[in-house]
Each structure stands twice: as structure tokens, then as C-alpha cells.
């Protein structure tokens, strides 16, 4: 069986897998990092989005062996060790950008990559376009878009703290 060596959330791992093992299976079933969800398994819904070397990818459509040598970040790797949330997580909480929460890990991971790729900031329209690869069946996206708009201000250093949501 092939062996995969990769870093996940800063921790090095070496794992035996089958050729056909998907990255999301390695994360969930071998490393027990179940924050990364599988919604559709057909690369449409985006619940499985993680970062490999800083790029957002759908972990259900990558073989574990293809991630060999890479640095993977999952939703579990975002908060600081003392429990302080990433600004995007904080914004999702503040803006109530979820209902059932199933899509949330993938939404947050996609949103972080999206914001990092747009240092000049994004309009509401650009945020909506940038979420093309993530489906949410509860919220209608409205508060997700608001949360990302607020988080980008903190991530780009234009604000020190998150703008509070309107009551």
C-alpha cells in the first residue's frame, strides 16, 4: 500500500493508504478529523473544502496520495491553540452565517482562500461569485456573504475587531 507523508494543521503524519483513498477519507477516517464534511461526494457542494499549501480544494476529489508532501489545513486548524477563533469563524458566529451548520466548515475554508486572493477587498457581488463552489441549503447565503464582507476588513487589517452585526 502506498504511504502518504503530509502535514495536517501543523502536525506531520505518515499514513498507509490505498491508491483510491480520497484525501477526505484520510482526514476523517484515519486522522479522525471529522470537521471536514462530505455532502455530495461529487465535487459540487463544497462541504469538504480544505487548503493544500494555502489553496482551497475539494478533498472529496483529490486522492490522498496526491496530497503527499503537502501541507493541509482543515477547519480544526484555524483557531489558535488557546481557542481564539480565526476572524472568519468569529464573523460566521457574529453574523449568524449558518443554520444547520453542515456546509459551514467548507464555507469557512473557501471564504478564507477567497479573501486572501482579494487583498483589495470584494464587493457583495464578488463574494457571491466566489462562493460558486459551495452550496448552502438553509441560509440563502445572505448572512454568509455579510460575514465574509465583515471578516475581510479584519483579515486585511483595515479594522482591528469585527464590526458588530446589527441587532
Amino acid at each position: 500500500m502506498p504511504s502518504v507523508s503530509l502535514t495536517v494543521n501543523g502536525q506531520p503524519h505518515s499514513v498507509e493508504v490505498e491508491g483510491r483513498t480520497l484525501l477526505v477519507e484520510l482526514l476523517r477516517e484515519k486522522l479522525r478529523l471529522t470537521g471536514t464534511h462530505v455532502g455530495c461526494d461529487t465535487s459540487q457542494c463544497g462541504a469538504c473544502v480544505v487548503h493544500i499549501d494555502g489553496e482551497s480544494v475539494k478533498a472529496c476529489t483529490i486522492l490522498a496520495v496526491q496530497a503527499d508532501g503537502g501541507s493541509v489545513t482543515t477547519i480544526e486548524g484555524l483557531a489558535s491553540p488557546d481557542g481564539g477563533l480565526h476572524p472568519m469563524q468569529e464573523a460566521f458566529r457574529e453574523y449568524h452565517a449558518l443554520q444547520c451548520g453542515f456546509c459551514t466548515p467548507g464555507m469557512v475554508m473557501s471564504a478564507i482562500d477567497l479573501v486572501e486572493k482579494h487583498p483589495q477587498g470584494m464587493s457583495e457581488h464578488e463574494i457571491r461569485e466566489g462562493l460558486e463552489g459551495n452550496l448552502c441549503r438553509c441560509t440563502g447565503y445572505h448572512n454568509i456573504v455579510k460575514a465574509i464582507a465583515a471578516a475581510q476588513e479584519v483579515m486585511h487589517g483595515r479594522r482591528d475587531t469585527l464590526a458588530p452585526a446589527e441587532a
Binding site: 473544502v49 483529490i62 460558486e132 463552489g133
Partner: peptide, 9 residues
């Protein structure tokens, strides 16, 4: 093409 995650791969 596709979506941002597909475009990354």
C-alpha cells in the same frame, strides 16, 4: 471554469 476549488486543481 468550474468553481474556484476546481480551478485550483
Amino acid at each position: 471554469l468550474g468553481d474556484p476549488q476546481v480551478r485550483n486543481r
